[in-house]
Simulated scan of single mutants.
Amino acid sequence: MSEVLKLTGLTRAFEQGGVRIEVLKGIDLSIMPGEIVALLGPSGSGKSTMLQAVGLLEGGFGGRIEVAGQDASAMNGDQRTDLRRSSIGFVYQFHHLLPDFTAMENVVMPQLVAGHAQGEAEGRARELLGALGLSSRVTHRPNQLSGGEQQRVAVARALANRPRLVLADEPTGNLDEATADRVFDEFLRLVRESGAAALIATHNERLALRMDRVLRLHEGRLHYEPAPNEQVGNSE
Rank of each mutant, 00 (worst) to 15 (best):
L199I: 01
P163F: 08
D169L: 13
E149F: 09
A197D: 01
G147V: 14
V153G: 09
L132Y: 07
A160E: 09
L134K: 09
E177T: 15
L215M: 10
P171K: 13
L207H: 06
R206A: 13
E149S: 04
A197I: 01
T202R: 01
T172D: 09
L134W: 03
V191L: 05
S135W: 06
G148F: 04
I200S: 02
L145V: 12
N161V: 09
M211S: 09
R124F: 02
Q150A: 12
R152D: 08
A160V: 05
L129T: 02
E127L: 12
A156S: 11
S136W: 07
P171Q: 08
S194H: 05
L134A: 04
G147W: 13
H203M: 10
L175C: 09
V155Y: 06
R210E: 00
G123V: 10
L199Y: 01
D176G: 06
H218W: 14
E186S: 13
T202H: 00
E149Q: 15
R137H: 14
D176R: 11
L190G: 00
A160R: 02
R182D: 14
P142H: 08
Q150T: 10
V155T: 06
P163S: 10
L128Q: 10
L159K: 00
D169K: 04
T202K: 01
G195I: 00
H218T: 10
E127T: 13
E193K: 14
A160Q: 08
L134S: 05
